[in-house]
Structure formats: C-alpha cells, structure tokens
Design a protein around this nucleic acid. Sequence first.
DNA 1: AACGAGGATGAAAGCGCTTACAGGCCGAGC
DNA 2: GCTCGGCCTGTAAGCGCTTTCATCCTCGTT
Lengths: 346, 346
Amino acid sequence: MPVTIYDIAEGARVSIATVSRVFNGHARVSDSTRDRVLRVAESLGYEPHASAQSLARRQTGLISAVVPMMTSAFFMEVLRGVQDRLDASHHDLLVYAARTVATVEGQLARAVQRGRSDGVLLVSTPLSDQRAATLAASGRPVVLVDSYHPDFDSVFIDNRRGGTVAVEHLVGRGHRRIGLLMPSEESAPARQRRDGYLDALAAAGLDADDGLMVTTDWDHEHHGYTRFAGYRAMQALLARFEGRPDARPTAVFAAADVMALGALRAAGEAGLRAPRDLDVVGFDDIESSTYAGLTTLRQPMAEMGRLAAEKLVRRLETPGAPAQHTVFAPTLVARQTTGSPVLELA
Amino acid sequence: MPVTIYDIAEGARVSIATVSRVFNGHARVSDSTRDRVLRVAESLGYEPHASAQSLARRQTGLISAVVPMMTSAFFMEVLRGVQDRLDASHHDLLVYAARTVATVEGQLARAVQRGRSDGVLLVSTPLSDQRAATLAASGRPVVLVDSYHPDFDSVFIDNRRGGTVAVEHLVGRGHRRIGLLMPSEESAPARQRRDGYLDALAAAGLDADDGLMVTTDWDHEHHGYTRFAGYRAMQALLARFEGRPDARPTAVFAAADVMALGALRAAGEAGLRAPRDLDVVGFDDIESSTYAGLTTLRQPMAEMGRLAAEKLVRRLETPGAPAQHTVFAPTLVARQTTGSPVLELA
DNA sequence: AACGAGGATGAAAGCGCTTACAGGCCGAGC
DNA sequence: GCTCGGCCTGTAAGCGCTTTCATCCTCGTT
C-alpha cells in the first residue's frame, strides 16, 4: 500500500540505490534516469519514510526543546524564536514540556534518547554536575537557555544587572523602602536578581532589610513562578506591616512578572493601587504585563530562542567546538505601575 | 560506542530476540534470563534507539500538532491540554507552528509524512475537500480542533451561540447600536460568530446595520487575528461616525480577544474608555483579557486540547471508527469592559 | 517409560532507506 | 586497436530493532 523506493525502482527500471540518489541530490545521475525516476515517484505519490531515513542516516532532523511547564508565557516566547530559526534549516521541533520542575528530569531523559532527536535545547533548567556529565558523555549536542554551565553552549540574560536596574529605577523615583518578592530559593535566576537588588540598595546607601524580602512558600512545584505565589507573597509582606503602615515598603520588586501580577492583585485587595500607593516592578515582560501596565525588565525571549536554535544547528554541523556563551542585557520598560502614563500596543 | 541490543545479547549470552523480548514485556522470558539481561543492560547503560524502534514497529510514538502561528495564546493553551493528555500515554509532541495561515499547508505536509508521527492534530485550520481527501487516503489519523469536517474527528466550540450570548449580554445592558469587529472573512469561526451576532440582533428586534460592522483589512496573513488588526478595525469604525457621535455604536463585539484588545487601545486614543463611553466584548478569553478587564466568551482551550488528544490516541488504538464530533459551549465572562467591577486572579 | 504439551529461546527475515564498493560502458589518448 | 579515466548504475551490506516460526527442553501424564 505505502509506496517505497522499491516500487519506484521497479517502475523506473533502475535500482533502489539510484532512486535514493535522485532524492538525495548528491551523486551523479544522468538527466534521463533522474527524470524517469521523478516522474514515476510523482505518479505513485512517493514520500520518503522518515523513520527509515533517520535510521539509515543516523540523524532524525528533529530538535527537542525541554521546558518546565507549557503554561508559561516566557517559554512560549522562547519556543517561538526557536521555531523561527528551525524552520529555516528544515528541522522539526519536539516539545517536552514538563508539568512541574520536578518532572523536567524525566522529560530530558526522553528528549536525549538515542535516535529521538539530533540535539536538545534545555530551557530554564540548571544542570547538576552529574547530569552534565551524563549529557556530555552521551555526546548529544545541547544548548542551555536561561541557565548556565561552563561545558555547554548557552544563552541567558544578565539577571543580576536586571535586578540592579529595577531597583535603581525605584530609587530614582524616591523610594527608600523597597520590598522584594522572590520565587523559590532554588531558582538561580531569581537569586541573581536578588543579588542585583542588593547591589543597587548598597550603591544607593540603603540597608538591606530582611523584613522587606519575602520568598514565597507556594507553588513550589513551579519554583514559585506563578501568579498565586506572587499573590501570597505580597499578602505576607503586607501582613508584616499591619498596624504600622508608615513602615510599609513604598515599592516592590518582584523577581518575575507573573509574581508581580499576583502581587498587584493582593495589593489591590488591600486597597493599595499602583502607582498611587505603591510602585511595582517585575521581570521578564510577558505579554500580560503590557495590559497590566506593569513596569518590568524585558528579556528578548524570542531572540534568545532564535539564537539558541542557531547555536544548536551550528553545533550539529561542527561538533566538538568549545562552548560559547551569550549574555543579553535586560532593558527597563517603564509603565503605569511606576507612574508612567504610557500605553502601548505590542 | 553506542550500545545496542547486540552488545547486551553478547554480554548476557542470549540472542537479540530475547533481549528485545525483555524490553518489550510481552512474551515470556524466564526470570533468570530476564534478570541477567536487565543487569547487563543496566551496566552498559543501554537505551533503545528510537528511530530503529519506529521503523521496526511501524509507529513512532509521536503525535504532531499543526497550528497557525506559535504567537497565539489560544494555540498555546490548546497545546498545553494536548501535552497533558499525551504525557499520560507516553507519546511525544511534535509541534508544527506556521508563521502565517498560508504556510500551514506546508507544515501539515511535513506533519503527515510517512514515519514522522502516528497521528496529527490540526488546529484552527479548515480542511478543503481536496486536502481532506488526501488525508483520508493517507490513512493517517487526524483530529480537528476548532474546525469541522464530517469525515474527521473534531472538537470545537459553538461559535454562533457565543456570538449570540455576547450580543444578548450587550442588549441586556441597554445597547441598541452594537458594532461588530471581524477578522478575515476567510475565518469560519469568525463568520459563525457574526451569524450569532446577527441572530441576537434579530431576536432583540434590532436591525442589522452594515455601517456598524467592519472586517479588518490588516494582517491578512493571520486572518486578522491580531491586536493591530483590531486596532485598525476600531479606528475604521470610529471614523465612520466622525462628526456625529450620537450615531456611534455604544458597544462593540469583537470576534476575537486579540482584536478586542487592540480595539480598546484605539478607543482609548480616541478618548473613549470602556465601559464609561463604550462597552466591549471579545471572544476566547486568553490570558491577557483578564488583565485588560475584557468581557469575553470563554473557550475551554486546554480542555479542548486534552479531549482532542484523547480522541486521537483512541483512534490510534481503534482505527476505522466513525468520526465523532464534540462541541463545547462558550461561557460568558463578564468583566470591566461591560461594567463588571470584578477582579480575578486566574 | 514413552509421549505430548507448553514454555523458553534462537534463527532469520524484515522495516525502508543510505552508501561504500564494484562494475560496466564509452570516449579520449597514444 | 588498446588502454585508461570518468561517469553511471547496480550489488549488497548495513542502520538497530521487532517478530514470526521453528527448535529444544522440561515436565506432567498415562
């Protein structure tokens, strides 16, 4: 029923090798045979069998992308960039989206299975040294996005710098008591953003105050990168100052937009509106932030995805090249939550 | 270097057939040999070769999802549902995201290639009879999401009903002049939503007025499903009533949330705020709508994805079953743009 | 003690394609 | 006229795994 190269070979009175040659370009085939083969293939509706080609060629034409949770706008943007680049080089995209950070390991394992894909993009997932060793040993090309390991190509953002810029912006608006909303302590980017926050405080001659920082206890399975976690974190922060509103932070830096969005909600319920009663700055610049009027630090997500795919494709062609790292600088996008009246149309 | 079943066979002093049996469960193998094989495999770090398995088993364990543009929040939600379901049955997801509606054909062609995947989910893409015939002939299982064709399983929403509910809501709020913002005429769901709009007008004893309806001229490559298209459509609508504000529509139904969001922007620039000067209702309930306070008709996107994947998986097991169609009812979510003060935390 | 039933295992034939390697053929060079 | 060098094309050996079919044992029966 399905037509194979044998059928074509028979129809065109040539060997299967010749048919294969015709379809693979390389190798010289006389014009007459080529035409004949093509004609027969056309009339039979031939289409090569992907699995068979993968097996024989020892490459699949597939790239897998491993991301923690499909839910996140951040990952979607990254994947969009990846797609863009992959389309250009005739690679198809296999998406391994975990439900929680804990299940990423499992997805990664599937993604790197022999014969599954030619390379993998690992997004927002720190690589333990042990896992790194396993990966390196497997020899499969890997590019890290939004995380870093010396042995693998990577594309990430200067989180620390971003934290600093966020706080500088707030300090510039006159704030002295600036709160910090952190997702899980386990998130390296979040820790770096906090470091940036601390840097800026120090530079401004302000004391770091533990009473102004809260790390969420919620949604640990997503490392706290959820609206609800932000909502709860903000509630917790506000609760600390019940009865003494004068000591309350006048601004808050949330280490992720989703958290900031939840925080805005919590603040709203407590009767606090940004920027009237409180300034808020997030991090990422996901699409919803535009509508929420959230000031934030923009990560060029799609661009990062595109570059990561680019690096991966290059590495497929040139294995063994030393690892290269690219770091992007986040840019401040001032919106209503820090007093900017700007409306945009993304 | 890579370890194959031959290596294990040799190490465990059995034939490759036995090794294969051990890994595939079925077929009886004595406990002692099984242990031996497993032990050797373990120590050698064996992992089956996906392409080889695909070729021999004549199935890939992959499902492809074809969607027009990765950009859209709608598709991402659908995919999330798909992922959820697929994880459960050990299938991996191949994503074919087109850049524009015009390139969907090409992506579909790749998705259905022999040996590429076991089945395909085609999202928001109407099937021409010719394409339908080709697909049917290929015998590859297909499930349609957000579109309909009698010959294939499908999951979609009652767009017409949604349009009606939207307008009923507006009529209920006292509106008599209700505008309509349409993406491309080529979008079947959009046309159905318009039909619903017309139904409701008629039921309310209101005349349908072409002067109140505008179909966007922009972003045709995305069938008008963009913020910018909504922005322009709204501008065009408002322009028609320049100089005679009393004749202006007091409410607008945009056939897609993205359009509604752009429309809100255009209205804002014209000094019109919802719901003060104008009510707005969208369709879809994408995430940003929550933040924009947009009243809309919610589609259970993830649920639709999940069900579609479910149908596809079932069909893999039971080919030849007659096509089944499932239609969901959209639900009205009243928010600020039609006067509801509700704040939510998704 | 002979026989049959089953269970465990191996041999081998694919799955559909790629790719050395080896001819075969033909014109050019001497 | 003969040889040599190229160009085409065919032969055949995989790629790594699954799966029938046949074979060989081991017991339980009678």
